[in-house]
Design a binder for these strands. Structure first.
Lengths: 233, 233
DNA sequence: AGAAATTTGTTCGTATGTATA
DNA sequence: TTATACATACGAACAAATTTC
């Protein structure tokens, strides 16, 4: 027997697939849903709460429930629990990020708008002229994020955001440390230059080479740091 | 003001981070949680239902709520709604899959066990000797999935599974069509051969080349099909 | 094997805060 | 401002499944 609170979830799924519900649409009131589906309001609410936390709907006190579609937070939540429960770590996140950025580069060189290419160059200038760690981290993030955004693939974009969110929440100093440790390192600047130039010029080979160098350097640096730290203990 | 059902979610998150809750552990009874957190049992249940649907816990009628950690279903659910609500399509899924397989190849060549390499060769033999569409689809899937599994990155594995699930549920004939349309095409066989050999030999360049060919061919084939279909209308 | 206790599943009734016309 | 519609939240009760003794 289908659990009661699943009825509301399947109902919404059916309505969306049938085209009867689109983003922005308001759902029927909880009481009506309860009547239609033959379950209690509490069961309806349990189902709606799940949909809310999945990002499918947004509930507004006193107003109603509306079809939303912001899944980034949901992915962040899910992956956060994966991070906490499944021995995920910085290396796994970085591997995943590299996969997404690599493919984003392939797609971006063909799809990026002039505005995006221009912005990419701005970010790069600000990165290399920055005189504070915060600023460097900010524009480093901006460059990588813009790259992924230009892929125009919402699956990939949402997942990338989720990975970034986890890093910011649980290992916030890692990025800064690495960037600081390499600020005088010409190699990382060089890697970023290739990423940006590849993106701007539509040269995916150059861009991918930049990414390759970038992720290799931060891995080398992190491994060195870990050995160094272990050696101190 | 924090919504009531969020209290239980944050409570579980805290307990997990503190190490007090691990996979398999049983949560306190709903009534006790309600008392501890100062909310009603209904609110506790709304929060638990969300955690359940996120894959964090599993509820068993008459027994209790237990920390679980199966996030693949959740990711499938979330991405299914993305598929339905955000104009996602086969091409986006394929782009994402390629990203994951590409990185999986990089990691697998170093990490794959002998058993996995052996299995990979078995699957390949069965793929090229298969005489039914079903069988070909089955071993095609097995090869690609084994590759991703060998990455040992649960983020990537769970996401890959989710993408596969969506394809199976909503565009189940697509894979079969492509494979059938190319069964006599030596190029696809050749691509798979390189993927398998690269994986088995630990040669990531060869493996990546195989993936490149593979994804290029299925895109070419699909684009041709679409033009063909449009021409018929 | 069976009965009692425990726990989740589900429902109803009620009160309250919020948004909208 | 008032009235109405709606979500939020609580408490009590019983059903159903499981565990325990």
């Amino acid at each position: 027997m289908e659990k009661s609170y699943m009825k509301i979830i399947n109902y919404v799924k059916r309505e969306i697939l049938a085209g009867a519900l689109k983003p922005g649409d308001q759902l029927l009131p909880e009481r009506e849903l309860a009547e239609i589906l033959g379950v209690s309001r509490n069961s309806v609410r349990e189902g709606l709460r799940t949909l809310d936390n999945m990002g499918v709907i947004k509930s507004f006190h006193g107003s109603g429930n509306y079809i939303a579609g912001n899944f980034e937070e949901t992915l962040t939540e899910v992956m956060t629990f994966m991070y906490m429960l499944k021995d995920m770590d910085y290396d796994r996140i970085t591997e995943f990020r590299y996969a997404l950025e690599w493919q984003a580069m392939n797609l971006a060189v063909r799809q990026a708008t002039d505005q995006q290419r221009q912005k990419m160059q701005e970010y790069y200038k600000k990165l290399i002229t920055a005189d504070r760690e915060e600023t460097r981290v900010k524009y480093d993030k901006a460059i990588h994020y813009l790259l992924v955004q230009a892929s125009k693939n919402d699956y990939m974009i949402s997942n990338y955001k989720a990975l970034n969110n986890i890093m910011d929440r649980y290992i916030p100093t890692m990025r800064g440390k690495i960037i600081e440790g390499m600020k005088s390192d010409e190699r990382l600047i060089n890697a970023h230059r290739r990423i940006v130039e590849g993106f701007v010029e539509g040269n995916y080979l150059k861009g991918r080479q930049g990414l390759n160098l970038h992720f290799r350097y931060i891995k080398e640096y992190k491994d060195y740091e870990e050995v160094h730290k272990n050696g101190m203990e």
